[in-house]
Design a protein around this nucleic acid. Structure first.
Lengths: 254, 254
DNA sequence: TCCTGTGTTGTACAGTGTACAGAGTGTGTA
DNA sequence: TACACACTCTGTACACTGTACAACACAGGA
């Protein structure tokens, strides 16, 4: 990552850089979806034999991990660290940015929850989230707990959202995916599922940007619950298409 | 699922039942971990040719989906539907049960977020969760939103937890996995990560039962935030090993 | 200069999902 | 009762996977 030019090695120069391998791998899944990813495909795109890749990556699994790290690094972390804005706005807009980033690489989003996220970019996200929550007045201990809750909520939401697609970019627009969900839900037998039947329109929007922000807002509410006074800021909801203005009808009663 | 004996088909009787195929598949991943799952392995265990499996399942992907459905059905849904207990206790203890179930089938937990969860068992969980939240006094719309937030939090937490293992049951005990996380975190360079460095012990416990319940509690807090009065029930935390009694130091101030 | 560690190649193996053709089987209909 | 068809299952086969192994090409350190 930070090692620009390490001490000279023996033997022939490497014809590639690890970053170029990741470039090729991300390009492949961005073009062909998750099933297109293979050691052979990456090697082929780089013009080398499959085995040669193993000088750069230890295994197929390791390849998947660096891909996740790369895409994680594409999110706009400055939204989280910027000292100017309010802590809540910082968290919400970064979460939004991270989701958008992952949705442009849906095949990568599918890899999110299958390997440990211990790379530097993942650590950096945790670090800055904790910082924002400490700014919010949480104790270090609670800030740590809340950080993980937020990570789980954000990554889980994106993963479940992408799981309903084939992972081949570009994803259908949100409206189309919601409509597909509505059709699928309308087809079920309603007699056994009273609440589900009454909530089909609502449940179809579980994968929506609105729902994403609502979940995060409720989680943040709960995390700062004990802090006085509950701050009445206007709940940013950046670039939400505006549908369902009543999204935040259940707000703090302060 | 509910079709005990459908209308008689032509041709020779099926030598198996779809449920037996799922039995075999679950047994395989429970014995050999996620990598052991293959169409050939399932067929072999059932004493048939690989292709014969395609009479029962449409594809390898479909096989994975019925496996998830099966394990989802193993969770104790009665904990959620029981009318006697308080809604919050019902949700918390069901979430606990679901996590325990998934942790005994870690290879299945790894499949959780890679395919749409549209089976009857998944729908049933949503249905009953919504019921509990409506009991809590939420509007149907908010109950629907909160249902999904909870699903995301619970499944996301389990998936991320299992992602740090090889998925081969039985998982190491929680304490060992936490210790492993602590060692890994202690090895990083601390100068760039002040909050992380100060929170290593805390972050090591991100995968703990305590953290799981804390996250869920904060989310529930946020979801019922606007409802008066915030109910002072004692936060069950079933079967938590008792470590970290200060888990709920940040509670509502009522 | 040679030695030695490294990058890359070619070959190879065991394993994967599943398509295809055919044989056997039992039920609904003529 | 006989036929035809729908269905299950077999054997074979293909294209593909991750990666181990041996051999060769290169270049820095002694």
């Amino acid at each position: 990552m930070s090692r620009v030019e390490s001490q000279p090695r023996r033997g022939p120069r490497r014809s590639l850089d690890v970053e170029q391998v990741v470039d090729a791998a991300v390009a492949i899944v961005d073009e062909g979806g998750p099933d297109a990813l293979s050691v052979r495909a990456v090697a082929g795109r780089l013009g080398m034999n499959p085995n040669a890749l193993y000088t750069y990556i230890a295994s197929r699994a390791a390849l998947e991990r660096v891909i996740v790290e790369r895409v994680l690094g594409e999110s706009d972390l400055a939204l989280l660290t910027g000292p100017a804005e309010h802590w809540r706005q910082r968290i919400v807009s970064y979460a939004h940015s991270l989701r958008e980033t992952l949705l442009t690489h849906p095949a990568v989003a599918r890899l999110l929850m299958t390997a440990p996220m211990d790379g530097p970019n993942a650590l950096r996200v945790g670090e800055e989230l904790m910082g924002a929550l400490i700014d919010a007045g949480l104790s270090p201990r609670d800030a740590g707990r809340a950080t993980y809750s937020i990570i789980v909520q954000v990554l889980g939401a994106v993963a479940l959202e992408v799981a309903e697609t084939d992972g081949r970019p570009p994803l259908p627009p949100e409206g189309a995916r919601i409509a597909g969900r509505r059709d699928a839900l309308a087809a079920i037998d309603h007699t056994d599922w009273p609440h589900t039947a009454a909530a089909i329109d609502m449940m179809a929007q579980w994968i929506s940007t609105d729902q994403f922000h609502w979940s995060l807002a409720r989680l943040l509410d709960g995390c700062v619950y004990s802090l006085a006074p509950p701050e009445p800021e206007p709940e940013p909801e950046p670039r939400t298409p505006g549908a369902h203005a009543g999204a935040d009808q259940a707000r703090r009663r302060g």
